[in-house]
Design a protein around this nucleic acid. Structure first.
Lengths: 356, 356
DNA sequence: TTGTATGCGTTATCAT
DNA sequence: ATGATAACGCATACAA
């Protein structure tokens, strides 16, 4: 005799009314006499009735869930701090609203499209987050065609019907460049992310713009892929060049850390002979030696705001684009004035690390 | 006139049969005449009918989704490579079976319990993964009481009704110790994970057991927390001690990397004066300088097998516990023979890094 | 071999 | 103004 979960029919029977009236009463809708409402609430309470989520989902045609499709090489996903932090931010909002997060990890581009399509066709979610925007991102029209509400992280470079939740990278990159120029650097290079990602592209442009604003010639840019191995290769190319840079601005911490290690391997000490700056402010970067100068963005908050925006959009009360606090510089010990050209690498140990 | 999606009633009408017959025909159940079946399939094809996922979910009382509750401090979640990789493995299996993954990130213990409860009560998922097992983990009985099928990652230390998907850490740790002893080390320390995690506890025990098996006295163990900051502090404590170790075995790569940086800060070169080994084989560890000797586990495969096991359990065809390929040692350059006691830190640059 | 009723909560429509 | 009824979506136990 499995204790069957009470249904709305049980409540209706006990209160002596119809199912419809129970529904109206419990959802606080008008058209129910106060006395009747009271009776219904008591019956529901007595039976400890909770609406069946699946039935509710069916009748209102809502999933009460949001979707996130991650298109990344699984083997590299583990070293990216973005998604876990972003998801954690999203979750804080969803948890208090009874919403769930449905995740998909898609390898290649084909699987990605299929992922959105499945989420939409199965009605698994009421809306999706569009992260890691690419240039001329096909997902904008795809998701729109699927009839799925969405928010984009930052603004796409194509017309978009979706609200954008924006966190501007560029001030952070500009601040790094200004910081390095202020220290006396003139040969500054950049290790960029893939150029088809909007953020990779944007950080690169911000780098070049900031140099130009400082009246310096364009620095060398090595396009890489946000991975440690890519950062290693790009750094080798830069440091093996005839006129190597005295400072390198990386598009993320992972490549920067790999870069520092390449420098160490070449006997080039950081920051004495090479200044290095990252981007992300991962937990590790403060605990390196030297601790990494980097750029911090509030990814957790980004997730929170994106979730709120998407839920508002789904509820038909979109507030339009949102602008978050831009990225900002965190100065630590991996950046310092360039050494005099004649000076050789000093063998002195680094000063004790200290958080800025 | 929104083009209403065709329903099973439309198909039934077109084929001149009842809804029930359509359902039987399309699910390949017996009791439908071949000619009738053919007619129904044609009608469904012509109308391009797809079953409504939500209605299906309601009628069969299944969510066609699995759940994962992650109880981690959100600010530290980003530096842990485990979950993204595990999830990616899970997804490869779910994608081809039309299943979804519902994720919850819960901060403290209270929120964690609430997370499982919500998943169960709302019928959001048909089963859950129990990861990061703790000693006397209360989730075993909780999830069982909630009537939710589950698989555990490794075996709990309490009686469990759930299949376990096991990947043994211990051979990896033992191999590290053997490797270090083989190099000539006798003062080997361990920086452990939190002792209430079974894997933190297990790696520590494996470390001590391996030393004992080698006939060496118990090495010093610093219990830490898997974070860079924790690894930094623990390493300081070890290296500041009167009789510092010549090798440190860390319970994860993140702490090991932080440890290497502490050593650098103290002018202690790795591996010349201190050997360091990690655990995880994160992407970065091969690109450090020196590249990190560590232990590799197939987290992606773990996710795949766990997903298959959980789905099998839900379908009532559980295959019992599963044992995966155990963790195995990856020797790189961060481990070397201990220097002679009298020898001071050599200032020679590291050899060029090379993957083992 | 096929049709019907039931399970679910919500809501449009109808009846008082 | 209040409340009852039926329909929505699919699968399945049961009746015919």
């Amino acid at each position: 005799m499995a204790e069957r979960r009470p249904t709305i029919a049980d409540v209706a029977r006990r209160a002596g009314v119809s199912k419809g009236t129970v529904s109206f009463a419990l959802n606080g809708r008008p058209g129910v006499a106060a006395a009747t409402r009271e009776r219904i609430l008591e019956a529901a309470e007595a039976l400890n009735w909770r609406p069946n989520h699946r039935a509710r989902s069916l009748s209102v045609s809502r999933a009460f869930a949001l979707g996130l499709v991650i298109a990344r090489d699984p083997s590299l996903l583990g070293s990216d701090p973005f998604f876990p932090t972003f998801i954690a931010g999203v979750e804080t909002v969803l948890a208090e609203r009874g919403q769930a997060l449905v995740l998909q990890v898609a390898g290649g581009g084909q699987a990605e499209t299929e992922g959105y399509r499945r989420l939409a066709q199965d009605g698994r979610v009421d809306g999706v987050f569009l992260t890691d925007l690419r240039r001329h991102d096909p997902r904008i029209t795809l998701v729109d065609a699927l009839g799925l509400p969405a928010v984009t992280l930052n603004r796409p470079d194509v017309p978009s019907p979706f609200p954008a939740v924006c966190l501007d990278d560029r001030p952070g990159i500009a601040a790094v460049v200004d910081h390095l120029v202020g220290l006396g650097h003139t040969r500054i290079a950049h290790v960029a992310g893939p150029d088809d990602f909007l953020h990779g592209h944007g950080r690169r442009k911000a780098f070049l713009d900031a140099l130009a604003a400082q009246g310096l010639p364009a620095g060398r840019v090595e396009v890489s892929d946000f991975t440690a191995s890519g950062g290693t290769a790009a750094t080798r190319r830069l440091l093996d060049a005839p006129d190597p840079p005295t400072a390198i601005v990386y598009a993320n911490d992972l490549m920067a850390i790999a870069g520092i290690n390449v420098a160490h391997g070449l006997g080039i000490s950081v920051p004495a002979r090479l200044s290095v700056a990252g981007f992300d402010d991962t937990e590790l970067s403060a605990h390196l030696h030297p601790p990494l100068t980097t750029v911090r963005t509030d990814v957790f908050g980004w997730g929170q705001v994106a979730a709120r925006s998407l839920l508002a959009l789904i509820d038909g009360e979109s507030t339009g684009d949102v602008e978050l606090e831009p990225a900002r510089l965190v100065v630590r010990r991996s950046t310092a004035p360039p050494s005099a050209p004649s000076e050789t690498s000093p063998a002195t140990p680094y000063p004790t690390p200290e958080e800025s």
